[in-house]
Design a protein around this nucleic acid. Structure first.
Lengths: 127, 127
DNA sequence: CCAACTGTATTATAGTATTGATACACAAAT
DNA sequence: ATTTGTGTATCAATACTATAATACAGTTGG
């Protein structure tokens, strides 16, 4: 279990965890019943404080995406409507796409270049 | 004068202003000598504090992108190398594109859908 | 039972970030 | 000289983020 964390980012660590898990659960990459890594494991791996991880987990538990079982690891809750549809997942990425569109306009960049660059980055990512 | 501000965003207002101006100046949409709207105008329009705008302006002045003239409005500084090249502007949007690529992977979205949606948003934006 | 493992509540601390209210210095125009 | 327009220095008030050190309640496996 990875967690793509960047401590130099302006978005706080706990929120990076929250958002990442929200996406992976919504997409079905994490399935109901899957156990999450323990807060201490994550904390040690990324040299952050266990409570920071716990905070992220708690928020997701309040959201209904995770289930807390005393003494046992957190696990993914059964999703009410099953996996999100492709359309719904596309909605989740829309804010970031709108951000890109805004920046492109402000940078006076044409659609083609931006799309070409995005395709390049996504292809590189698949490896 | 526009300023696309979102007070509900997690990125602070002053940074939204800074980044937006950086892009528009780099792209040449704002040319050397162009005057900026006064801090009070911007503040009133968006119902924020004038100091928030001033902070953004000051940062850009320290960066050399703006010039301060006492009693007169801030204006865009002459850019050392003229407008940024298209390649350079593409670099400026890369972090946001990488963010999109990350999210797409975590959402298990295929490249085509993401690109199609981005194209749609950018087309809508041009109006 | 015991040891090792889960998550969490608590309290404290530190640092940083963000925004705001107020008063001030300066320029330009009348 | 006065008014109106710049930007901003200063100080204050929060809010946020992360860390630390404990202690506790529960499960699991030997």
């Amino acid at each position: 279990m990875h967690f793509d964390l960047h401590s130099e980012s302006s978005t706080p660590i706990y929120r990076q965890i929250v958002e990442q898990l929200r996406r992976e659960i919504g997409a079905g990459l994490l399935k109901p019943g899957d156990a999450l890594p323990s807060v201490r494991q994550v904390a040690e791996l990324h040299t952050i404080n266990p409570m920071t991880v716990s905070r992220a987990y708690s928020l997701l538990e309040a959201e209904g995406l995770l289930i807390r079982q005393r003494g046992k690891p957190m696990c993914v809750a059964a999703q009410p409507g099953g996996q999100d549809s492709s359309a719904k997942r596309l909605q989740l990425i829309t804010p970031s796409l709108e951000q890109v569109a805004r920046e492109a306009r402000q940078l006076n960049l044409d659609t083609e270049s931006v799309i070409a660059e995005l395709a390049r980055l996504m292809k590189k990512d698949r490896k």
